Simulated assay, not measured.
Amino acid sequence: MGNGALSGAVIAVAGAGGPAGRAAVLRLAEAGATVIGADNDPERLAEAVDAAGYAHGGATVVGDTVDLLNRESAQEWADRIEKDFGRVDGLVHLVGGWRGSETFTKTRLDDWDFLELLLIRTVQHTSLAFHEALQRSDRGRYVLISAAGASSPTAGNAAYAAAKAAAEAWTLALGDYFRKAGGEGGPHAAAAILVVKALVHDAMRAERPNAKFAGFTDVTDLAEAVVGVWDKPAAEVNGRRLWLTEKP
């Protein structure tokens, strides 16, 4: 385990219990990182942590039940990780959710209220909680997973696309903080956005065996791309959208 690409790194994963979170936790552990996952569903989180720990016996994989809708809880989580493990080298933000409508006219604004909390407020809380620790790291990375719809919204996805676009803008502002903090030497921490059309995993394929899922990114490929953000120098990925699907 000691010779992985992320050996010695301490990486937090928000939304670790979902399919994408599980894949990311597994891949990060495989790369040698100490992984601290958070999810609002304790059972789902325990399954993700157990699966990664079982697959990679030498890895340290920990689960924390954290309310990322609460600013103080997010801050306490960040502080606890740095205190317990001595550093924080990454925050991978995989808190997801979707609400849509048939047409623009039928958009429900309570969908916006739900998505604003899930897709924007959680990003605000994790970025504000972790940015100083990431800046202190020699390889700090904040990784947001976003959707192509943020750049080319469809009529029925107004609330979702607008929430994703706001989360992207917030993350790019964090990237500007890292850029300025780096001074003339360039940033040594980075905020990057991985953009997918949508995600697919084995359970979805099993449920819909005839579906093509054209242009979708498999969660294992997303996990590989997450690890890849650490392979590149901070200046190359900071404040960038890294497209895993065709650019609109």
Rank of each mutant, 00 (worst) to 15 (best):
L6A: 03
G8I: 14
I11T: 06
A14M: 12
G15A: 00
A16S: 07
A20L: 06
R27C: 11
A31H: 02
A31F: 01
D41H: 11
A48P: 04
V49H: 00
G57K: 14
G57W: 15
G57R: 15
G57P: 15
G58I: 13
T60V: 15
G63H: 01
D64M: 05
V66G: 02
D67Y: 11
E76W: 11
A78I: 06
D79N: 13
R87C: 09
V88I: 15
G97L: 09
R99S: 12
F104Y: 13
F104Q: 11
T105I: 08
K106H: 12
D110N: 14
D111K: 07
L115G: 00
L119G: 02
V123D: 00
H125V: 11
A133R: 05
L134W: 11
S146N: 15
A158E: 02
A159C: 03
W170L: 13
K180T: 14
K180L: 15
G185I: 10
H188T: 14
V196K: 07
L199S: 05
A203Y: 00
E207R: 08
F213I: 05
F216Q: 04
F216L: 01
D218R: 07
V219I: 04
T220K: 09
L222K: 06
A225P: 05
W230Y: 11
T245R: 07
E246G: 12
